[in-house]
């Protein structure tokens, strides 16, 4: 247990936060990029609600605007129209209660691991002293204790991404936005990281919004899988995932899980949800 900040309503159900208050609302989000070859239409009239303590995966094919959506939520980016509301106030700039984890770890190569973790404190002009015991605890938990003096290039891809997770959790943000964080990792490291993220999420009770194009990863992690259509990104369907937690890698081979994979893949392909008939054991159970 790192930091028990889970919302009381959320802690009542281990599967997420069905009764928790709405933390973030995306309200008719539309985004066009101006590029040299003309406008790119990334998002079209997308609305979404995220409850406190929830783990939400945003899933869609490459270029469907899911990273765009995440960047709009983080305040790095503005929307062409529509807005993102967090804690009742529109997001117009990066907010301190949001932490972001990027594609490819995104460590600063000229800083060692510890200096990388100190980076947010330097930017925020925050005294890291009160956070240090927690950071050491986190480093131990992700298996990076003793690597503080190492430079990023001396660490493996998985270690780098774990370091970036520690960097994000270090200052204890309530909302964590993850932008395809494990896309560059091999399948085994990816499973490991998914288990780690699940454990950290269950321990800390943070709200996590996780962008991915990997269907099983999304189902494995999420309370809700938000499926977007190909560009421009529209909401195709929201799949509630009520598989019990903690989820294990073995569960990804279960018929229930595979049924969800099929349904979601069909939804991505056709752009809208149509229930599929269950097959085999899942049909017998359901």
């Amino acid at each position: 247990m790192i930091h028990a900040t889970r919302h009381p309503a959320a802690s009542a159900s281990p599967n997420g936060a069905v009764d928790a208050p709405v933390l973030m609302a995306v309200d008719h989000a539309t985004k066009y990029y101006k590029t040299q070859t003309g406008a790119v239409h990334a998002l079209e009239d997308l609305s979404l609600q995220i409850r406190e303590g929830e783990f939400v995966c945003i899933l869609g094919p490459s270029g469907c605007g899911k990273s765009t959506l995440l960047w709009a939520m983080s305040g790095l980016h503005d929307l062409t129209s529509g807005q993102v509301v967090l804690h009742g106030a529109p997001v117009t700039a990066p907010r301190p209660e949001i932490g972001m984890i990027f594609q490819d770890a995104n460590l600063l190569p000229w800083r060692n691991l510890w200096q990388n973790i100190m980076f947010p404190f330097e930017i925020k002009k925050l005294d890291p002293k009160p956070f240090e015991p927690r950071i050491h605890q986190l480093l131990k938990e992700v298996g990076l204790a003793g690597f503080e003096k190492k430079m990023p290039r001396e660490l493996s891809g998985g270690m780098q991404q774990r370091a970036s997770i520690v960097r994000c959790l270090s200052y204890d943000p309530g909302v964590i936005l993850m932008d395809e964080p494990f896309g560059a990792l091999d399948a085994f490291t990816r499973d490991e990281m998914n288990l780690l993220i699940q454990r950290l999420w269950m321990d800390t009770g943070k709200t996590i919004i996780f962008v991915t194009h990997n269907v099983s990863e999304a189902i494995f992690l999420a309370d809700q899988v938000v499926v977007l259509t190909p560009r421009p990104g529209r909401l195709a369907h929201i799949f509630p995932i009520d598989l019990p937690r903690p989820r294990t890698v073995e569960m990804t081979f279960e018929p229930d899980f595979i049924h969800l994979v099929r349904e979601i893949k069909m939804t991505i392909e056709t752009g809208r949800y149509a229930p599929l008939a269950k097959v085999g054991r899942a049909a017998a159970q359901g």
Partner: peptide
């Protein structure tokens, strides 16, 4: 990517310069 990282912590343009662009 690094600039976005610093911006996500609320970095000012000056901080972007001293902490990212200069190194």
């Amino acid at each position: 990517a690094r600039i976005a990282l610093a911006r996500s912590y609320g970095a000012s343009t000056f901080q972007i310069f001293t902490k990212i662009r200069f190194p």
